[in-house]
Nucleic acid binder design. Structure first.
Length: 104
DNA sequence: TAGATGACTAATA
DNA sequence: CTATTAGCCATCT
């Protein structure tokens, strides 16, 4: 089980209408490097398997909009799941942040 | 092997 | 809130 698979496994566990941060995933995996998480999603997102659109940075800001099918695609998917936004690029973390129980 | 890069975070201004 | 710096570490060249 590589780091990548662990990341994908966790991301797949994020329920609909929820989002989480790179830092949360990193900690849940016993590391502190959120960059690795970002790199994992960038490298092999297992498209249609891993809901990477539910992963945002600590500020609630979406990843670069061009990281998916097209600009605004991440936003469209999230809104469709019931996620509320502060603006076009920021999800309402306060309401939708999902935390893994691995590190309490 | 070394240096640059990056879907990040935290501290500081 | 933004901008800058530093820390982090796998991957790329």
């Amino acid at each position: 089980m590589n780091f990548f698979d662990q990341v994908y496994d966790l991301v797949k566990k994020i329920p609909e209408g929820r989002v989480t941060t790179y830092g949360e995933i990193a900690q849940a995996l016993g590391t502190r490097d959120a960059r690795k998480v970002g790199w994992a999603l960038h490298s092999n997102p297992y498209e249609d398997v891993v809901p990477c659109h539910r992963v945002v940075n600590k500020n609630g800001r979406l990843a670069p909009n061009f990281a998916f099918d097209g600009p605004g695609e991440q936003w469209r998917r999230l809104e469709q799941e019931g996620i509320t936004f502060l603006d076009r690029d920021h999800v309402n973390l306060k309401q939708h942040l999902f935390v893994f129980d691995s590190h309490s």
